[in-house]
Nucleic acid binder design. Structure first.
Lengths: 221, 221
DNA sequence: TAATAATTTCACCGACTTTTCACAGAGTTG
DNA sequence: CAACTCTGTGAAAAGTCGGTGAAATTATTA
C-alpha cells in the first residue's frame, strides 16, 4: 500500500505517515498541491490524502490537475469551517473526505474503505482469441471451437494467468505464487496436475501450453 | 406541488410554508428527522426541505433513511459554520443545500431548480425482459410469467445489480460492496442466502443466476 | 408496544475440487 | 546404453465450497 500525504503542516504529515507505516504501508509526502501533482506524475500511489488549504496550489485544484492523467483514489482533508463553495462549483473527483481535526485511526479507516472499493471492481473487459480458443475473463467463459469449456476455479485462474502472460516462461514457483497465492505451501507437482487437467479441457489447443523442461510452462500461440 | 418542510424551529417552518402556499404549493411540516421519515413513508412529496441540526434524528440520518425507500429530491438547510456538512449531504443523496440565514425567496428558487431538474430528466424507463422474466427497475417491479413477484428490498437490489451486469462474473465480495455497500461488515455467505431466496422467487427463471464455483455468481441469459 | 417481515448467521451434507503420490515413459548426460 | 532427472498421468485421499433449512437478530409496521 503506497500513500501520498499532502499537507502544508509538517506535524500532520508526520502523524499520518507514522500511522500508515505502522500499518505496513509506505508513505510519501508533499507540502503543497504543486508538489503533489508532480509526485503523482512520477509515482503510482494506491491512495492520496489531500489537504484543501495549502499554499501555491490548493488541494482541490491539485485533484483537478491529477485527474487529467490519473484515477488514483483521493481522500480530502478539510478544516471545519473552511469555505467549500468552490468545491461544489464544479465536479470534484475525490473519493471521500475527512474533516479536521481527525484521528489518524479514522483517516486510515477511510483509506481502507476506499481501497476496498477501488480494488473490488476492477475494470475488466478482456476477451482473448487464439484460433478456436476464446477466453473471456470478465464473463469467466472459455470456449473451445465455440463450445463452452467447463473449467474448475483453479483451471480458470491458471488459464487467465497464462493468457495474461503469454510468451513468458513461467516457473512452477511463480505460478504457485501468482495463481495459488504466496501462502501456498505444498508440492511443485500440483501445478503439473492442473496443467494436465487444463490441457485436457482445451482439447486441441493444449498445444498453446508448452512445457519448458526443468523450468515450468509457457503459453504461446 | 407538494412540499415537506422539516425543521425544529416552528418560525422557520411557518415562513417557508407561507411562501410555498403563496406560490400555489401545498406544504406539510415535520419537527424532526423521525417525523420526516414517517411522513415520507405515508405521503408522496415533490421535494423535501430538510434542516440538518434537529433533535431525535438529524437531517443527514433522515435522508439516509428516506433513501432506502424513496428518491424524492431533498434540499438541505444548514446553519452557516456547518458548511462541511455539505460534503456529506451530497454523498448521502441530497440534491442541493441552502445555508442559513436564507431568504424564503432563495429557498423557493432552489426548489424550482430542483423540480425542473427532476422532471426535465428524461424518464429512463429501464425495463428488461428475459423470456418470461420482466424486470422494471424504475417501477421496482418484477414479473414472472406475467405474475408479479413479491421481492424483499435486498432481493430487488440484488436482482437489479445482476441484470445491470448480466454476463459479468460477480464475486461475493463485489456483490457485497455494490449491493450492500462498502461498509457492510459480515459474512460472505449472506449473499448465498439472498441468492437462494431470489432464485426461489424467480421460479423457472432461477436458471439465469449461474453459480460460479469458487467465485460467486453471474446473471446470464 | 407487539406482531410481522426482512436480514443475517450458522451448521449439515452432498458434490465437486485440489492435492498428493506412485509409476511409466520421455528426455538428458556422460 | 545405462543412469539419472524430469514430466505426464491416473487414482485415491483430503479438503473446500455451495445449497439449504432453521435459528437468531434486526428492522419495519400496525
Amino acid at each position: 500500500m503506497k500513500i501520498l500525504i499532502v499537507d502544508d503542516e509538517e506535524m500532520i504529515r508526520a502523524v499520518l505517515r507514522e500511522y500508515a507505516e505502522f500499518e505496513g504501508g509506505e508513505a510519501d509526502e508533499a507540502a503543497d498541491g504543486m508538489e503533489a501533482v508532480q509526485m503523482c506524475r512520477q509515482n503510482r500511489y494506491d491512495v492520496v490524502l489531500m489537504d484543501v488549504m495549502m499554499p501555491r496550489l490548493d488541494g482541490f485544484s491539485a485533484v483537478k490537475e491529477i485527474r487529467k492523467f490519473s484515477q488514483v483514489p483521493v481522500i480530502m482533508l478539510s478544516a471545519r469551517g473552511e469555505e467549500y463553495d468552490k468545491l461544489f462549483g464544479f465536479e470534484i473527483g475525490s473519493d471521500d473526505y475527512v474533516t479536521k481535526p481527525f484521528s489518524p485511526k479514522e483517516v486510515m479507516a477511510r483509506v481502507h474503505a476506499v481501497l476496498k472499493r477501488s480494488t473490488a471492481a476492477p475494470e475488466h473487459h478482456e476477451v482473448y482469441e487464439f484460433e478456436g480458443l476464446r477466453v473471456d475473463v470478465e464473463g469467466r467463459n472459455v470456449y473451445v471451437d465455440g463450445e463452452k469449456a467447463e473449467l474448475t476455479p483453479k483451471e480458470y485462474e491458471l488459464l487467465f494467468y497464462f493468457v495474461q502472460n503469454r510468451g513468458v516462461a513461467l516457473s512452477r514457483e511463480r505460478l504457485l505464487n501468482k495463481v495459488w497465492g504466496y501462502d501456498f505451501y505444498g508440492d511443485d507437482r500440483t501445478v503439473d496436475t492442473h496443467v494436465k487437467m487444463l490441457r485436457g479441457n482445451l482439447k486441441e489447443y493444449r498445444k498453446f501450453i508448452v512445457t519448458l523442461r526443468g523450468l515450468g510452462y509457457k503459453f504461446e500461440t
